[in-house]
Simulated assay, not measured.
Amino acid sequence: MMEASSMLKLPPPVWALVYVLLAAAISWQLDWLKMPGFPLPLLGIALATVPWILPVWAIIVFRREGTEINPTSPTNRKLIATGPYRHTRNPMYLGLVIVTLGIAVSIGAWPMFLAPIAVFATANWVHIPFEEAKMRRQFGSTYDDYVGRVRRWV
């Protein structure tokens, strides 16, 4: 297994793409073995498109506030607690997890459901802890207050 610092070198959307492509390759090798009741193309399309609202909204807020979007930047100019950040501390990651779930639901092959699990795991145990430590060092009790008000996911 790669160490967390190595995994931070690739941005979360790249990891999501890697996981989807890997799951697709496994699915192809297994002749697209479908889960019972799947695929659900309309639900999958909705889950793969609507969640883009979260990261786009988050990017707009970051740009408007003049702070960094890159999760591995050494510092952030400002702690953002508005827009989607009032409801979840990680709207971009939440959007990626739901998008990959939508792809899995659309395709319906059981290995595809590993992709959203892998995206969640990478975000939750690699990227988010790095970002939280950085924000805590930089913003101290202001960040701790924010963490007390807003959940990590939903």
Results as ranks from 00 to 15, higher is better:
Trp153Thr: 07
Pro13Val: 07
Ala123Pro: 02
Ala109Cys: 04
Thr122Val: 10
Ile80Lys: 03
Val97Trp: 00
Pro11Met: 09
Thr88Val: 08
Val105Pro: 02
Ala121Leu: 12
Leu43Cys: 08
Leu94Gly: 04
Gln138Asn: 08
Ala133Val: 10
Val154Ala: 10
Gly37Leu: 06
Ala24Thr: 14
Pro91Tyr: 03
Val61Cys: 13
Ser106Phe: 15
Asn76Ser: 14
Tyr93Ile: 14
His87Trp: 15
Phe113Val: 04
Gln29Asn: 13
Leu21Met: 13
Glu3Ala: 07
Thr88Arg: 02
Leu79Met: 13
Ala118Tyr: 00
Lys34Cys: 02
Val50Trp: 06
Ser6Gly: 11
Val18Leu: 14
Thr49Asp: 07
Glu3Asp: 15
Ile26Cys: 13
Gly140Cys: 02
Arg89Tyr: 01
Gly83Arg: 08
Met2Phe: 14
Pro36Asp: 13
Leu79Ile: 08
Asn124Glu: 05
Pro51Tyr: 06
Thr67Arg: 05
Pro111Asp: 10
Thr72Asn: 12
Leu114Val: 12
Tyr146Trp: 10
Trp32Gly: 01
Arg137Phe: 13
Trp125Arg: 11
Gly44Gln: 03
Ala115Asp: 06
Lys9Glu: 15
Gly66Tyr: 07
Ile128Trp: 07
Val20Pro: 10
Pro13His: 10
Glu132Ile: 11
Trp153Asn: 05
Leu96Pro: 01
Pro51Gln: 06
Leu10Met: 11
Phe62Val: 01
Gly37Asn: 02
Glu132Leu: 10
Lys9Thr: 14
Asn76His: 11
Met1Gln: 12
Val56Gln: 05
Pro12Phe: 01
Arg89Lys: 09
Leu101Asn: 00
Ile80Arg: 05
Met35Pro: 00
Ser141Ile: 04
Leu96Thr: 03
Val99Asp: 03
Thr122Cys: 05
Tyr146Asp: 07
Ala25Glu: 14
